[in-house]
Nucleic acid binder design. Structure first.
Lengths: 342, 342
DNA sequence: GCGGTCGATGATAACGTTTTCCCCACCCGA
DNA sequence: TCGGGTGGGGAAAACGTTATCATCGACCGC
């Protein structure tokens, strides 16, 4: 309120320089190590920095140097298991490379919502972007992303399908493996409760279908659930009424938990009457009774690999090879051989 | 490589101005709406912007205007249920206010790891910070955060304990409520499998203790688990051997799932022999058999309230009132009256 | 002892935007 | 017709840092 200083302006490089009795660029050199500085001057500068509690202004730094240290993650959600763990993997990689990570969730898959989101992301000084391709919103974001910004797609596909860098978990292979495993137990076919449709089918569903097809098994209609356990429960109720179902592959562990519960509530024995398998291997599923057979997907690793890919992109590598991890089947107690239904 | 242009420099305001035949500030005015511009000029400018695909440079913008639109979340994790949902709530609020959110995870609670993290966060042009106080790392981060940056603490406390703005879930009340409920069923006391220690005890544990104390019940030793279901399982095995336990409150749903499974595996009936209660109300817990009684905590709402608090702080409000939500007890089938243990 | 290289430092430009200040043309009322 | 307000727009300063270039001394080899 007085004439001189209002809210005690944050100290800047010039303040440090004056106190240390050196020039502004010298202070900068101490901070960035871009050029050697004599030990004595360095000490004076550091002392001055500590004294006034100086912190570099990131905006100014980025503006002039053009170096960007922000990686933005675009995603349709952050709370679900896969999203959250992928995000953690990315954050961990970024931390190691001393980069920052921003997260923007897309409200819906409406075209204008997507472009609005992208605009908001690209106004920031981002070095690159990682899009989580787990749902329609992610898919739409990839389409709408300008080709000029370094972009990595993290998702569940099996091969690169466009001009970007990809880090993937081969969900298709996972779906195939678990379906084949169920068939090998003697099931004539495997029914499938999928998550929300992505427009095109998800890798999990594709793998399931491929395995049935190559085994010459009948391909039942896909049952579409939301990601909620409740929704799985509702389908489980339906399934319990049918006599033709002996094996169910669910699009996620949460759905499987619901299906499992519904079956047991209806007096269906698992796995004696019906086998149930999930997808993801969330920590709790081995505590279900019976412990859930599922497909383990290492999302944390997926996040780490996406960040690696982006780092290479930023380092100037032209063609970053697509990195694909294969999920692994975890056999527990919810699946077993076919028996005569009591 | 040629003499003129290397990688086709990104278009800047000057380019737009030249094409539209106006001055640089005029383009800025169109973009920010800081001053009225004639309709005709505005149209020319917009056309030019679209034509060359201009995007404002956020760094330059922040540097000169001093307006910051970045909210940074500091957290010990992002993957666990509470963290992930709180983060989503924050992201949602930020999106509505068209601000950006950054996320930084602290590797450990080591003092230098914490200050390193904070340094990294504060180099960015942050408007404010939200610290997730769910673990030691978060606690340490709050201590080390300079008082000059607008900070909101999001956590599980019951009242403000320092000079910051707080958004809380009153875990203490939740712990008290569920414990009292169990006592009201006739249990002489309630045992407690807590999550990792936070140094000081967590609100959940405090509430449990307070309820026992005020009921004059014996206060058993706390059993400390990790957040892993497996760890809960191990404690469940121990508990099954004991004859004096009739009710167990767990520090999280995942721990409860483990305890539950161990008890059932050992032939202990739930809730007939032992009642089990969890904490959080993750979606899957109603699918456990028996469905888990637990304390519901709305983390998404916590995130939204933290962002609100920060927004007010940034709007210049001096004293932002602490916002406290009370968790609600969800009674399902895993808890019941005491019976003679068979 | 002298030209040349090197190491340390300072002066100045540059980054891309917003802000401030000023000018000009126009309109209105007296 | 003239003065004062007003609304649109341009010129230049400012933001805080790094990059570029110049300077100055010391040191080295011949």
């Amino acid at each position: 309120m007085a004439t001189t200083s209002r809210t005690k302006r944050a100290p800047v490089l010039g303040d440090v320089a004056r106190i240390a009795g050196v020039s502004v660029p010298t202070v900068s050199r101490v901070l960035t190590g871009s050029k050697p500085v004599s030990a004595e001057v360095e000490q004076r500068v550091r002392r001055a920095i500590d004294k006034i509690g100086y912190r570099p202004n990131g905006a100014a730094r980025m503006l002039v140097s053009g170096r960007r240290s922000l990686v933005s993650v675009i995603s349709g959600s952050t709370a679900s298991y896969g999203y959250a763990n992928t995000l953690e993997g990315i954050a961990h990689g970024a931390r190691t490379a001393s980069m920052d990570v921003g997260i923007t969730v897309i409200d819906s898959a409406e075209p204008d919502a997507v472009t609005a989101t992208i605009d908001q992301v690209l106004v920031q000084p981002v070095a690159g972007v990682i899009v989580l391709e787990f749902d329609r919103a992610g898919l739409a974001a990839i389409e709408a992303m300008p080709s000029t910004v370094p972009t990595v797609v993290a998702g569940g596909g099996s091969r690169r399908t466009g001009p970007r860098a990809y880090a993937l978990i081969d969900e298709r292979a996972g779906g195939r493996e678990v379906t084949s495993y169920l068939l090998s137990l003697g099931h004539k076919t495997v029914h499938h409760v999928a998550g929300p449709t992505m427009g095109k089918h998800s890798g999990r569903t594709e793998g399931w279908r491929a395995a049935l097809k190559s085994a010459g098994a009948k391909i039942p209609d896909v049952m579409h659930a939301t990601w909620e356990p409740r929704s799985g429960y509702d389908w489980g109720k339906q399934i319990a009424k049918r006599r033709d179902v002996t094996a169910v592959l669910c699009g996620s562990d949460d759905i499987a938990a619901g299906v499992l519960r519904a079956l047991l509530d209806c007096g269906v024995r698992v796995p004696e009457d019906i086998s149930v398998a999930g997808f993801d291997d969330q920590p709790y599923v081995e505590m279900l009774r019976p412990a859930l057979t599922t497909v383990r997907q290492d999302f944390h690793d997926l996040g780490a690999r996406s960040f690696d890919a982006l780092a290479r992109l930023l380092a100037g590598v032209r063609e970053v090879p697509t990195s694909v991890a294969t999920p692994s089947l975890v056999i527990r107690d919810s699946t077993g051989p076919v028996r005569a239904r009591r």
